[in-house]
């Protein structure tokens, strides 16, 4: 294993740009897939459950839920792209192999891919945010900050998910990651209800994972409340982003440079 620290060059942006150009061609299906499901949760649960719940943590349930869905859909979009799509380019399609016949290094390719995955996450952040704004779920003046924040959230989830792509033998493997990692986080990280209603062991466990921290940054911004422990939350997300990138580069080197 080559554990040397990654060093990427500005050429990494060419990798990002390649993905952007492909995405532009396939815009229709991409939009439906990325935005359809979170919007379903937002409307279905927000209006349905919201009717019974009214307020949660001193804000309308729609606001509570919308802020949670902004975080979780960013996670989902980034994690999906960084597993299935990165794997497609790394293994069956051999796109990365082709790139390696240029000055690009594995470090650049993974940096470009990660930025792309985070960008797709950010598109979800922005889309759900706009919908939440339109249905009156947004109260805070600083709420638009959730969009740039979405990029950091996207990076936090992309890095780790790219590690999965780099070790996966096939597409089936990602079912484990989503069933054992992403879905439990989605359900247990305060998207639908406050984390403090969980047993304390689970609360602790969730604090170690990134989604809780994304929710706790995004929710007060959307609701117009003061953000508590902002530096901690930002630090956890940044740590996941940097650690995930480093490990993904090491694992991708092992896979691509044999």
């Amino acid at each position: 294993m080559n554990w040397s620290l990654p060093r990427f060059s500005p050429l990494a942006l060419a990798v990002f740009r390649r993905n952007l150009l492909v995405w532009r061609k396939l815009l229709g299906p991409a939009v439906v897939m990325n935005f359809g499901e979170p919007l379903l949760y937002l409307f279905g649960l927000g209006y349905g459950l919201g009717l019974f719940i009214g307020e949660m943590q001193a804000m309308p349930y729609l606001t509570f839920l919308a802020s949670g869905i902004i975080a979780s859909s960013t996670m989902n979009a980034a994690a999906f792209e960084a597993t299935y799509s990165v794997f497609t380019r790394m293994v069956p399609q051999r796109t990365h192999e082709a790139m390696l016949a240029s000055p690009l290094e594995v470090d650049d390719i993974m940096a470009g891919e990660m930025l792309w995955c985070a960008f797709k996450g950010t598109l979800s952040t922005a889309a759900i945010f706009i919908v939440a704004l339109l249905v009156g779920g947004v109260q805070g003046d600083w709420a638009p900050l959730v969009v740039p924040l979405g990029l950091l959230v996207g990076l936090a989830f992309s890095g780790v998910a790219m590690c999965m792509a780099a070790v996966s033998p096939s597409y089936d493997f990602f079912s484990y990651y989503f069933t054992l990692g992403i879905t439990p986080m989605f359900v247990l990280s305060g998207v639908f209800y406050p984390v403090d209603s969980l047993p304390s062991v689970l609360q602790w466990l969730m604090q170690l994972l990134p989604l809780v921290h994304a929710v706790e940054l995004i929710r007060p911004l959307v609701a117009g409340l003061p953000v508590e422990g902002a530096w901690l939350h930002l630090a956890v997300l940044l740590l996941y982003a940097l650690g995930g990138y480093y490990l993904a580069v090491v694992l991708a080197r092992r896979r691509l440079l044999v």
Binding site: R18, L26, Q93
Partner: peptide, 22 residues
């Protein structure tokens, strides 16, 4: 083994590949 980019046309393949060289 050919590893051309299936999402692009013939000319686009060359253009995109050039971008990897800056």
């Amino acid at each position: 083994m050919d590893n051309l980019d299936p999402d692009f046309s013939v000319a686009e393949n060359l253009r995109i590949f050039a971008s990897y060289f800056g």
